[in-house]
Design a protein around this nucleic acid. Structure first.
Lengths: 183, 183
DNA sequence: TCACTATGCTTGTTATAACAGATGAAATTC
DNA sequence: GAATTTCATCTGTTATAACAAGCATAGTGA
């Protein structure tokens, strides 16, 4: 599989990482997005690399899921509900594990319900809460999709060693663990 | 600034990175998305870390840009057009440097034009091609936004050392450089 | 017990990624 | 020169992220 045309690019301007001798050397990303100028800072370059890698990998996963008529977000919702078991989860609980803080959960679950993959029910005890459970056909759909996702994700990254992947994970975790006083 | 609630999560199932003694130890991401099961593989864990880090950083940038009434994609379009100079770029050329391979470029530029930030003109030589140029007020808007984006991106990542950022960039570049025969 | 506040969800809306087909123009082929 | 193919853009549509307001319900305090 060849990489698709570049996905969304991000803020970048002058500056680049310097080699040992202090000379600016263009990175791979600069070429990918046909950037003649170097990046403003190594922070900008890192940010763009993170976002571009995510876009590319998500796009490739999307292409693999497309024949099954399921999006990545729908797949994740189903997986979360399978994990929840028979009691299901409320909209808020699903949203907490899925999407950003004001997720379009009602419409997302509505689409899954129309496909017969989940069932929603308003609680008797608290009529504000809607519990959602995965259906038998939702579980079957996941059985189909799990190997597709697993093998796609594996194929995307299997040219990196376990040591490299471990290092990447560590760095990304550290990137997300910024001190709360910053910015 | 505190991290927002987790954004979209991705495919994950059983398995996790092992410690030196072979014991499974949950990663930070597992806790972030309230995952009781470990990840299916280190590939899945790496994939989710990439996507989650990108979502989080983009969300934070989005929040910084919101008061200016500009989205990240719009900002990037303007930056690309500033870089192109007086002759502007065609829709296809912008799309190549911006978004995925079938980008919604017409509508994106239409919105920027309505804000007076760009001007579109159909070529006399080839009436299929629409050239887009940034306007003076587009350039002014960028002057406002550049420091916002620069400082936000810097703040997101300045708790990492230059060495760590360089390593992260290298690993992400390698992640994107998969052999074309894979998958 | 009632008024007020908080919670959970729903709906309308905009922006963008993605898919697909249509339109007009240019290039190519016969 | 005409027909066909290719190219660039446009438009309709769906899914999702995001924003905001509204509705129904539950909880709290006086």
């Amino acid at each position: 599989m060849t990489a698709p045309k570049q996905s969304r690019t991000r803020a970048a301007s002058q500056g680049t990482r310097t080699t040992a001798g202090g000379q600016a050397s263009p990175g791979q990303l600069q070429k990918e997005i046909r950037q003649t100028k170097s990046f403003a800072s190594i922070h900008a370059e890192a940010f763009l690399n993170i976002v571009r890698t995510a876009d590319q990998t998500q796009h490739l996963l999307h292409m693999q899921l497309k024949p099954y008529g399921i999006t990545e977000t729908q797949y994740n919702s189903l997986r979360i509900l399978r994990g929840a078991g028979k009691q299901g989860l409320s909209c808020a609980e699903i949203g907490e594990r899925l999407i950003s803080q004001d997720p379009d959960i009602t419409r997302l679950l509505g689409r899954l319900e129309r496909q017969g993959l989940v069932r929603r029910e308003r609680g008797a005890k608290d009529r504000r809460v809607v519990m959602t459970k995965i259906t038998a056909s939702g579980l079957e759909r996941l059985k189909e999709l799990d190997p597709v996702v697993t093998s796609t994700v594996h194929a995307l990254l299997d040219h990196l060693s376990e040591d490299e992947l471990g290092k990447m994970i560590g760095l990304l975790e550290r990137a997300r663990s910024r001190p709360t006083s910053s910015a």
